[in-house]
């Protein structure tokens, strides 16, 4: 009885210490990457290659899901708004929900699934096959050569993808509202322009997506770098990337929104 209680408390303590250790190791890695950022900027070809892998290759899934999200918003919004006789406000609804929330958040979730997992698996496998150690042997810093360019590429790609998501989503909403349902095209755009503010809505959306870009890429990099060098270790690290990224994005989204919206 007493010993089982002791082991339960010991397990809690162990998990807590483990969690703090990971947080500290993640923070240290983040600091290292920031230190090596300047060095990696001087080799833009590496960054361009990584932007291709994280950004350009994510384009298709982002654009297709954006169009469908926009269309669903249009349909659902119309369904409710027409009960109040204000179906022209559908443009406002689609644009505000995309620019403020769905654009940055859904892009970050898709990014974690599409690009984050790829980063984690790649770096985890590099560690498992001792490529990172080989670099260290040749006096090449793996943080500067492998991690920093990927970090920069993720931070650059995310706002671009989120902006594209919002734009394509608005077009998807337009496609449902105007040609399919028959809302007036002029009212759709003019009501949208009257209530979407550049500074308050669009710039805040971009700020959110930059923060999500930093967090998602950082989690993916750390999980890959920290993964045990086994097949199982890499697979678990990949799963953790998706879970932690999603939780971090949704939690941070609430905090950022609370700061941005003046109540």
């Amino acid at each position: 009885m007493f010993s089982s209680l002791k082991s339960v408390i010991a397990k809690i303590g162990h998990n807590f210490i483990e969690g703090v250790w990971h947080l500290g190791a993640g923070g240290r890695l983040f600091f290292y990457i920031l230190v090596y950022l300047g060095e990696s900027i001087r080799r833009p070809s590496l960054i361009v290659r990584e932007i291709y892998a994280t950004g350009v290759l994510s384009l298709l899934i982002i654009l297709v899901s954006a169009f469908f999200v926009g269309m669903v918003l249009g349909l659902q919004g119309y369904n409710t708004l027409q009960k109040y006789g204000s179906s022209e406000a559908i443009g406002v609804l689609v644009a505000l929900s995309l620019v403020r929330e769905l654009g940055p958040v859904v892009t970050a979730l898709l990014f974690a699934g599409r690009a984050g997992t790829a980063i984690t698996a790649e770096i985890g496998l590099m560690r498992a096959t001792e490529q990172l150690s080989a670099m260290e042997m040749m006096a090449v810093s793996p943080v500067g050569r492998v991690l920093a360019p990927r970090f920069l590429a993720g931070v650059i790609s995310m706002p671009i993808l989120a902006a594209l998501f919002s734009m394509i989503g608005v077009l998807g909403g337009y496609f449902v509202a105007v040609p399919l349902i028959g809302v007036d095209s002029g009212a759709f755009w003019s009501q949208m322009q009257a209530s979407v503010d550049f500074r308050e809505d669009i710039v805040n959306g971009v700020i959110k997506s930059v923060v999500f870009g930093i967090v998602c890429t950082m989690i993916a990099l750390f999980e890959g770098y920290d993964a045990p060098p086994t097949a199982e270790g890499v697979s678990r690290a990949t799963t953790r990337t998706v879970v932690y990224s999603s939780l971090a994005v949704l939690g941070l989204d609430f905090i950022l929104t609370a700061f941005m919206i003046k109540v």
Binding site: I51, Y52, V56, I160, M167, V170, V196, I202, V206
Partner: peptide, 23 residues
């Protein structure tokens, strides 16, 4: 491709500012 990607992103932000926002 990366040039195309970045140009697309800039175009999207411009489009949001001019067509969706009230700039």
């Amino acid at each position: 491709w990366v040039g195309f990607f970045v140009a697309l992103g800039v175009a999207a932000i411009l489009g949001l500012a001019l067509k969706v926002g009230n700039l």
